[in-house]
Simulated assay, not measured.
Amino acid sequence: MTRQPDWLVGGDRHQLAVERIHAAAAELIARGGMGGLNIDQVAAQAGCARATVYRYVGGKSALREAVLTGATARIAQTIQRSVAPLDGAERVTQAILGALTAVRADPVAVAFLNASTPQEIDGFLAGNPRLADAAVELTGIATADPAAGQWIVRVVLSLLFWPATDPATERALVERFVVPNFAA
């Protein structure tokens, strides 16, 4: 009997297992969409047993949420880098347009948006107070109104589901109808 190499060599076993399982799930979601997420396939892709997936990350729902949270964090980091030197109207514009670009380029985000119900999108994105807070921070708007962040998220979602004919038109729409309400 040939002994297989340990699949978690080289660091903290728990962290490595979680990262490897999340990466496998993200790859499967990107290839087959959210509906195709299957614990057996995740285990096979990660090179572990089904029980290992449950032990380290929980069930399908927890795995799905973790992968989506990871995609959201990657998108936020991309936006943060693009808006860091900006302020005012240009920051608001770039944050929204950068979000569109980053979401459209992220295979997990695209799979989620393509396969989710309006209720799922509302719960995970539009109605998520953490995402609204991130939208306020990324756009740099100064407001105590929690609805402002939700409005920014909904603007981004609207343009994702009903994009303008081209990027220049999207920019013009954001500059004309969104920026005047938020830029200092």
Rank of each mutant, 00 (worst) to 15 (best):
S158T: 15
G58N: 02
R176K: 11
A142H: 14
P129R: 03
A71Q: 08
T117L: 15
R130M: 01
P5S: 11
G11Y: 08
A24L: 03
A147G: 07
Y56G: 01
D133W: 06
L8Q: 00
A184T: 14
A95F: 05
L100W: 04
I75M: 15
N38S: 07
A76M: 06
N38C: 08
A134Y: 07
Q119L: 01
L8I: 01
A76K: 02
G98M: 05
A26H: 09
I39R: 03
S116T: 04
V42E: 04
I79Q: 00
C48L: 02
T117Q: 13
A84Y: 03
T143Y: 13
D133Y: 10
N128I: 12
L173Y: 02
V136M: 14
N181P: 00
R171Q: 15
R13D: 00
P167I: 14
G10D: 11
D145G: 05
F124C: 00
P180T: 08
V57T: 03
T169R: 14
E137H: 12
G36M: 10
L28I: 05
G11L: 12
N128R: 08
A164H: 03
F124L: 10
G36C: 14
E175D: 10
G35M: 06
L97N: 00
Q94L: 12
R13C: 04
E27P: 03
A102G: 12
L68P: 09
E65I: 13
L63G: 02
A126N: 13
V153I: 14
D87Y: 08
I152F: 01
I29A: 02
T72N: 13
A76L: 06
V103H: 00
N114W: 01
F112A: 00
T52I: 06
A71V: 13
L125P: 10
A115H: 12
W151L: 15
